[in-house]
């Protein structure tokens, strides 16, 4: 059970949050121009890294804001949290 530092509310228990999977996957601006393979890449392909992973989290039972989090999946160490639209930190 992590303690997550919501960029809007501060430190809160993990039970207030939900994880939205890999971060920085941008929805294509012109989906109609993509091939099936390219669209499938966006739609289905997600990394499952043992190590540092960039993730989307939602403070679902709090401010309801989405934000990004850098977490090492091998030891659950949280390296950084940052707001949507902000540049990912170099880890």
């Amino acid at each position: 059970m992590f303690v997550i530092n919501c960029p809007y509310c501060g430190e809160r228990d993990q039970s207030e949050f939900s994880c939205g999977g890999e971060a920085h996957i941008v929805r294509p601006k012109q989906p109609t121009e993509l091939s099936d393979d390219e669209w499938a890449e966006y739609l289905f392909m997600r990394k499952n890294i043992k190590g540092v992973q960039f993730e989307r989290w939602n403070h679902a039972h709090g401010c309801r804001k989405w934000f990004n989090m850098v977490r090492d999946t091998s030891n659950d160490k949280i390296h950084a949290v940052y707001k949507m639209g902000e540049k990912p930190p170099v880890i």
Partner: peptide
Amino acid sequence: LSKLEDYLQTEWP
């Protein structure tokens, strides 16, 4: 609601 918020906040801010 959660899904709509997700699109609003992350894809179409």
